[in-house]
C-alpha cells in the first residue's frame, strides 16, 4: 500500500478544489453541486462545507445522485441502489458533478444520463479527487482534479473517509 494523500494533504486539496469551483462559478445561485453515490458524497459534503464557509449566508444548491439504475453492467451484476436527493430543478443551471475517483469514465457516463432525466442543465463540469489518468474507456475528462496519478489495472485507489472508515487518506493498493 502506497499513500497518495495524507490526511493534512487531503484537507488542503479539498480546500483548493472548493476555491477552483468558486473561481469558475461566481454566481453560486446559478450553480448546483451534485455528489455521486455512494462514495462521492463524502467529498461533496466537505466541498460544500468549504464553499459555505467561504460565503456564509449564501444558498448553495447541493444534491446527491445515485446511478445504479443507469449502469452499463447490470446484466453482469446488480448493485444496491442508494438514495438520490435532488430537491431543486437543474434546468438551465451549471452543474458540477463530484466523485472521489475517476477511472474508466463509465460511472460518469451513467451519471450524465441520470442527470439529464432531471432537466437540461446549461453546462456540466466534473470534479474528482483522484484522476487515474490514461485509463479511460470513454471520452470523459475532469474539469477539477485533486491529484492525477498513474496506475495500472491491477492496482486500486482507495479513498478513506473519517465518517465512513474512521480515517482520512488516499492510498494505492496492489493486488
Amino acid at each position: 500500500m502506497k499513500s497518495i494523500l495524507t490526511e493534512s494533504q487531503l484537507a488542503i486539496t479539498i480546500k483548493r478544489l472548493a476555491h477552483q469551483i468558486l473561481e469558475n462559478n461566481s454566481e453560486l445561485a446559478n450553480t448546483v453541486l451534485i455528489g455521486l453515490q455512494p462514495r462521492g458524497i463524502y467529498l461533496s459534503d466537505q466541498l460544500v462545507d468549504a464553499i459555505r464557509k467561504e460565503f456564509p449566508g449564501t444558498q448553495v444548491h447541493y444534491g446527491k445522485l445515485d446511478i445504479t439504475f443507469y449502469r452499463d453492467d447490470i446484466r453482469k451484476e446488480l448493485h444496491i441502489a442508494n438514495q438520490t436527493d435532488i430537491p431543486f430543478s437543474i434546468e438551465g443551471k451549471r452543474v458540477v458533478l463530484i466523485d472521489d475517483v475517476l477511472y474508466t469514465g463509465r460511472t460518469i457516463r451513467a451519471a450524465l444520463d441520470a442527470l439529464l432525466d432531471f432537466g437540461r442543465p446549461e453546462k456540466v463540469e466534473l470534479c474528482v479527487l483522484i484522476d487515474r489518468r490514461f485509463s479511460r474507456q470513454f471520452p470523459i475528462q475532469p474539469d477539477y482534479v485533486g491529484k492525477a496519478i498513474d496506475s495500472i489495472v491491477s492496482q486500486r485507489v482507495k479513498v478513506y473517509w473519517k465518517k465512513k472508515d474512521g480515517r482520512e487518506e488516499v492510498a494505492l493498493l496492489d493486488y
Partner: peptide
C-alpha cells in the same frame, strides 16, 4: 424506496 424517488422525477423512467 429508491424507485419511489425515480417516480418523482421529471422523467419517471430508468433504462435498467
Amino acid at each position: 424506496e429508491q424507485f419511489k424517488e425515480v417516480l418523482q422525477r421529471p422523467v419517471k423512467k430508468v433504462p435498467s
